[in-house]
Structure formats: structure tokens, C-alpha cells
Design a protein around this nucleic acid. Structure first.
Length: 267
DNA sequence: CCCGGAACCTGAAGGC
DNA sequence: TGCCTTCAGGTTCCGG
């Protein structure tokens, strides 16, 4: 599942291949992949535009265009962008003027792309960037205060903090030794401080490893990332805690599988 | 505003 | 072998 480290990796590895290139053609095998405007308008407005930059806000990819508009892509759970043709599940292709093709691979058809007039509109409902300077421990504490929802659910709430998803939330909570079901507002100052540090650590490690390929995530080259090999609890069903050896548990939090150590992360 | 649950999708995995 | 059910989870929408 692409979360901040995965989207950041795609941004970094795609950039040198697309910046300065002009979109020459678009093709679709799944029309639902375009959210707005209409498929036809989407194509006519994009063709001929130069890609001037590639950015990221939370889990959104932002392709800045010469017109000032921006192409926004969200990969949701199973999407990935390839520079070589994948064997299956190609839903759309962005053709560039130098022969480069960007293949939007998405087995489950959740991913979407759309055009916006101003790329700043992407972030209006998003909280501060999980790795941004604005997200200090103090800001995180303020945002969690008085919240009664489970901390695991709040970490995954993009309006609270942008970029964290299911996997890295589990990793951050384990690192900070906090139970996923704890009410967000019940965390002590010390716990929030630990959590803030843990968030930065696990996301930076994820980026260094080029993302986690637990399921359908691939880098633009088609290669997997290696971050999942560093995970200590996330997706480690049936394994033991790397710190104390206690069998890991898995509970649903808002229907999302949550892995944790019952001894290191007390309720 | 806050919280929780359904819907969107389909391949993979497990049960019988 | 094959059919059926369940699971996977990011975002949006809706009801309380």
C-alpha cells in the first residue's frame, strides 16, 4: 500500500524521466481512473503540456504543468506507476514526447487521477506533513488532545497528519511502545514525544529502503522496495516481538489489521 | 466538530 | 479440482 515513503520513492525515481517532457497522448483501459473532468476533456487539456515538476503532498502525487494546472494522482491501495510495461493490470498510459511511457498499474482500480487548476488545492483538507517541520511534538500533542478515537485510527487520519497509513502507523506505535487502541487524547506528553520521534524514524527508514512491497507496491523500474524487511511488527502475522519474544497480536482497529506486541505495548 | 461504518474494487488465500 | 467466502486498506460519504 503506497504510504508516504512509497509515494516519495515514486516521485524521486520518476522525476528525472518526466520533468521537461511533454505529454503527447493518453490511453485508458479503465475509464473510472479519471475522476475529473470528463475523460475527453482530461485528455485534450493534458496533451501538449510540459511537466515542469513532480511533487508530493501526503500520499498525493502532483505533476506540475506548464499551464499552471496540475495532474494529481492518488495510488490508493494497489496503484503503481511504471516506466516499463507491466504484464497485467495497466489501467492507463501517459505517453511523453521522447517515447517515455508512464504505465498506471492498478489491480483493484481504486487509484484515481484528476486535473486541478491550482495544485495548492490538493492540501486543503490535509493535516501537516508527517515529515514536515511544522509537525513538532507540541503540534502533534495539540492535535491529539481531547480526541477519543484510537491512536491508530488518528495516525491514519490524513486530516490530522498527512502521509501515514496502516503499515507505518503500526511501526511507529511499536517503536513508541503505545497500544493501538489507546484514545488519542489519553497519551502523556512523554508518549506523544516518543510517538513523534518514532513517526519520523519509521518514515525516514521507509524512504531509505525505497518503500515497502508487502503487496502490490513497485518502484517505477518494476523493482520492489525493501522497507518491509525492516518492519518489526507490521504484516508480521504469526511472528514474535523482536524485543521480548512475545507472540505478536493482530486486532482490527476500524477494520484495519493492526499488529502489535501485547507486552511492549500495554493498553 | 467528532466518531464509526459502508462503499468502492478484485486478486489471493483458505475452507470444505 | 473447484467453488465459495473472506481478507486486504485509502479515501469519501453518510448517519448519529
Amino acid at each position: 500500500m503506497p504510504e508516504l515513503p512509497e509515494v516519495e520513492t515514486i516521485k524521486n525515481e520518476l522525476s528525472p524521466h518526466v520533468i521537461g517532457r511533454t505529454i503527447s497522448r493518453l490511453s485508458f483501459s479503465w475509464e473510472g481512473i479519471v475522476r475529473q473532468p470528463s475523460l475527453e476533456e482530461f485528455s485534450t487539456r493534458l496533451i501538449g503540456q510540459k511537466i515542469t515538476g513532480v511533487g508530493r503532498r501526503g500520499k498525493y502525487l502532483i505533476f506540475s504543468l506548464s499551464s499552471g494546472q496540475a495532474l494529481i494522482i492518488h495510488l490508493k491501495m494497489t496503484g503503481s506507476l511504471w516506466l516499463k510495461e507491466p504484464e497485467k493490470f495497466v489501467r492507463a498510459i501517459i505517453h511523453l514526447d521522447d517515447g517515455t511511457n508512464i504505465y498506471f498499474r492498478d489491480p483493484r482500480k481504486f487509484g484515481i487521477m484528476w486535473l486541478v487548476d491550482d495544485e495548492k488545492s490538493v492540501g486543503v483538507k490535509l493535516g501537516p506533513e508527517a515529515l514536515g517541520k511544522e509537525l513538532t511534538a507540541r503540534v502533534l500533542a495539540e492535535r491529539l488532545s481531547k480526541r477519543t478515537a484510537p491512536i491508530k485510527a488518528l495516525l491514519c487520519d490524513q486530516g490530522l497528519v498527512a502521509g501515514i497509513g496502516n503499515m507505518y502507523a503500526d511501526e511507529a506505535l511499536f517503536t513508541a511502545k503505545i497500544h493501538p487502541m489507546r484514545a488519542g487524547g489519553s497519551l502523556s506528553k512523554e508518549e506523544v514525544k516518543r510517538l513523534h520521534k518514532a513517526i519520523r524514524e519509521v518514515l525516514r527508514a521507509g524512504i531509505n529502503e525505497k518503500g515497502a512491497s508487502t503487496d502490490t507496491y513497485f518502484r517505477p523500474s518494476g523493482q520492489p522496495g525493501t522497507a518491509h524487511s525492516q518492519f518489526r511488527v507490521a504484516h508480521r502475522r504469526g511472528e514474535s516481538c523482536p524485543l521480548c519474544g512475545t507472540p505478536l497480536e493482530r486486532i482490527p482497529v476500524r477494520k484495519r489489521g493492526s499488529y502489535f506486541c501485547p507486552k511492549c505495548q500495554k493498553p
